[in-house]
Design a protein around this nucleic acid. Structure first.
Length: 248
DNA sequence: TCATTAAATTGTT
DNA sequence: AACAATTTAATGA
């Protein structure tokens, strides 16, 4: 389990940026490179958040935390791919959703100061940015912009959970694959997501809970239908809407 | 710039 | 799970 921890101030890129032009590169600009919601913050709020940000890296296949662990920080994926999973009532492991770079999660858990309800697994080498609970709560109390952002985020989360009830009925592997990919292109959760994602077919399989062979067949089928374009090591989404609706 | 090799990814059985 | 084919990355002439 290789985990490295860096405090905010020690990041070489960040300090270089600061020295280049103190009056032009604002904390907001800097924060925005890591977190798109930095837009909603004031310069002062952004500066304080930046200072408290903690970065961690995880190697592929390692657990970030298990269900029941305490991780009192709001979590953003800077690079990589994280799988949120849980154990069903029958004791089967199920994937809830994947989170790709640019995504933030765990707000519900941090708000209520609860133990984590899910397992978090790094599907590939991953870098996380953590906003410690005190700063998160401070932002929520002080920043109107952050509050607005968080309402949108939570609202979208509810939609995702509702969609998951539907997902349970899907037994067609191609439909499951389609749904998981579509979720990675949610315009609210990933406002800067373009139309392609770097992902191998093996990672698609891990995420959707199917074998690599099935993932391969499913992707080729979705490509035939004109929903996606499969390239080596990446997938381009041509019709997110239809991809999310596809049910076999 | 090109050739060689190793590693990663994909398609198939 | 294993295998072959294909693509990419890295290396050095």
């Amino acid at each position: 389990m290789s985990q490295r921890l860096e405090r905010g101030g020690s990041c070489p890129v960040r300090s270089r940026l600061l020295h280049q032009s103190v009056d032009r590169v604002t904390a907001k600009d800097e924060l925005r490179q890591i977190a798109y919601w930095g837009d909603a913050l004031s310069e002062d709020e952004a500066a304080r958040t930046l200072k408290a940000l903690v970065r961690r890296t995880y190697s592929a296949g390692s657990y970030i935390c298990h269900r029941g662990d305490r991780l009192d920080a709001w979590t953003g994926v800077t690079q990589g791919l994280v799988q949120l999973g849980a154990i069903s009532a029958e004791g089967k492991a199920i994937t809830i959703a994947g989170v790709r770079s640019g995504g933030w999660f765990g707000e519900g858990t941090v708000l209520k100061a609860e133990p984590r309800k899910y397992d978090m697994l790094a599907l590939r080498d991953t870098t996380l940015a953590l906003v410690p609970r005190p700063i998160f709560m401070w932002l929520l109390d002080t920043s109107a912009g952050f509050g607005r952002f968080l309402v949108h985020q939570l609202n979208e989360r509810i939609g995702q959970f509702i969609a998951m009830v539907e997902y349970d009925r899907l037994h067609n592997p191609a439909a499951r694959v389609a749904r998981h990919i579509a979720w990675l292109f949610n315009p609210v959760l990933y406002p800067n997501a373009g139309d392609r994602i770097e992902m191998t077919q093996e990672e698609v399989g891990l995420l959707a809970g199917v074998s690599r062979q099935i993932a391969n067949k499913s992707l080729l089928r979705l490509e035939e239908l004109g929903l996606i374009k499969v390239d080596r090591g990446s997938i381009q989404v041509l019709d997110v809407e239809a991809l999310g609706q596809f049910d076999g």
